[in-house]
Design a protein around this nucleic acid. Structure first.
Lengths: 334, 334
DNA sequence: GTGAAAGCGCTAACAA
DNA sequence: TTGTTAGCGCTTTCAC
């Protein structure tokens, strides 16, 4: 029974001697079907190798059981880890994922957002480094639920979001360094992006709590291209920093290598802290001490939250903050 | 004009005083529309903020402009790099991507394949380490075009595929090692998977070409968990290997570290070659010599190929092989 | 427990 | 150049 012509619910109905409505019921597990007819229909479905057309179903029911996922880039391990959590939970709840790369480009972000809406996704998970006014406006005018995952939303609007507290994560490690008398610098991405701004806030808060003056030139917002590590380390050393918190693991590894090349002993003379506890931190020598984030969980919880919203279930809190830890390894003297 | 009620092509038609057909024409860029009416309709579209429903369009036209992508795991940098190439080209041709993780699990592979068909994707790109008989059967009975990307297909069926020649890539580096009198081992993933089997074939071919006997215990198919590196290096050394080709970069880095811990000088006393030239190879010390693969391109070319098939365009070759290179760094004496 | 029938929002002949 | 009219394959009342 393997015809080129697509076989429809109507074919099954005819073959089974019932109406399409009945076929629809058994396909959708509706209990109001006599066991015997259910069996009869099921048999025909198997025999004809019938597969419901999800597009037609989507048009009729106004639900596509697919959610859109906007990601800066799939090749970014931070976000792809979230994506993994998202997809696992999505699969669990029978949703599929339309994945769209945004390249951290505001225009692309809103373009893919619109495409996703056109495809009638039931919900959207947004990942990025920031939420600009344009995208915020798009989200607010649409009626499709959106949850932010691993994305700093600041106080820009009343969004659903799942994230860790970047500010206090940085504050925690900075304080550890400060408490042992060190003079930590911070290396982040561009500070016009919310997520980096929050980390810098945490950095400053730590200095304040330690009762020390912040040296602004120890705050180094930059691109995350690790090729620039040599120059950055020069700056770091010129400013007499003896430790650094790096918000990107590849960069942290590159910085570590540069520091060692310059003859400094790590962690005795210089300490380095990475931020995502990626494999890189374990494979580099000495192994990098790092902030440890529940990346997979952020994605998983975000997707779970989205399913609740899509089903109009009760949601306790719109913003959920997951806990972070510190993984101590060989680049600090904790 | 921001109503909760979805606005349809019919609303636009009414407001603009034309038929739905005309609206459809301007939306789809059909040239057979008088410029003045086109403008009139466009204005209404803007005013009403009308967005065509892709699901309805898909049902009516039998084209969804979305392609399915089956990937072992998004967090695997090898495959996510391909995915990036796929998505970029897909976007260029106005396709969206439904991304599905398969976990290298045969059951999941066929399950997601079926789901993708149910969603009426216009084509599918399959990535994996192997193509088993089940999935092959599924593909052959379906009429949806499938292209394999970065996946060894062997001689199992007449599929479309884009890949590099794993066999000769390994052969090339093995030969380089052999030619300088070294005794290389090979560390791959499980050899029941085609991709690993091909690499082992290349390894053996190199020995043969060098006129040397292969020592089977130098062929080490194993899991790719780098935690097992210590034990593996013990074996390597027990077998008197003085160099190793590792088909997974994290593992290569772990092996490198282990070798160094044991007091061996790299590359003087022991050489290591990685396989994907990932960032890891550059951030580890000494930097890893590696096979260099055009990952992004594999994905991009595969997607381009798929667009051709979907448009019934002429395709010159069903299997395209992209060239690989060798990136020499500090872990070899080339 | 089951069927009839009206859409869902759009495309694609076919007419005009 | 524009409009009319069938569907696309399914869900979903509403009857029976």
């Amino acid at each position: 029974m393997d015809n080129k012509t697509t076989i429809t619910i109507y074919d099954v109905a005819r073959e089974a001697g019932v109406s399409m409505a009945t076929v629809s019921r058994v396909v959708n597990g509706n209990p109001n079907v006599k066991p015997s007819t259910r069996k009869k229909v099921s048999d025909v479905i198997d025999r004809l190798n019938y597969r419901p057309n999800a597009v037609a179903r989507g048009l009729a029911s106004k639900k596509t059981t697919t959610v859109g996922v906007i990601i800066p880039s799939v090749t970014n391990l931070f976000f792809s880890s979230l994506a993994r959590g998202i997809d696992d939970i999505a699969t669990m709840y029978k949703y599929n994922i339309i994945l769209a790369n945004s390249d951290e480009n505001p225009e692309k972000e809103i373009a893919v957002f619109q495409t996703l809406l056109a495809k009638q996704v039931d919900g959207i998970i947004f990942m990025g480094y920031d939420v600009n006014d344009q995208i915020r406006a798009e989200i607010e005018r649409s009626y499709t639920p959106v949850v932010f995952a691993g994305t700093a939303t600041g106080n820009k609007g009343d969004f659903y979001s799942v994230n860790i507290d970047d500010e206090s994560a940085v504050k925690d490690v900075a304080l550890k360094l400060l408490d042992m008398g060190a003079k930590p610098a911070i290396l982040t991405g561009p500070d016009h992006l919310l997520s980096n701004a929050e980390r810098i806030k945490g950095y400053k808060a730590a200095y304040k709590e330690a009762g020390k003056e912040v040296n602004e030139s120890l705050i180094m917002p930059t691109s995350h291209n690790y090729k620039s590590a040599p120059a950055l380390v020069d700056e770091l050393l010129a400013e007499k920093a003896d430790s650094v918190i790096v918000t990107h693991d590849d960069m942290a590894a590159a910085v570590l290598n540069e520091v060692i090349i310059r003859g400094l002993k790590v962690p005795e003379e210089f300490q380095v802290i990475a931020s995502h506890n990626s494999v890189m931190t374990e494979l580099v020598r000495p192994q990098l001490t790092s902030i440890e984030l529940p990346l997979y969980d952020i994605g998983a919880v975000a997707m779970r939250l989205l399913t609740k919203i899509m089903n109009s279930e009760e949601v306790d809190e719109k913003k959920v903050i997951l806990p972070h830890k510190i993984k101590e390894r060989g680049t600090t003297r904790f």
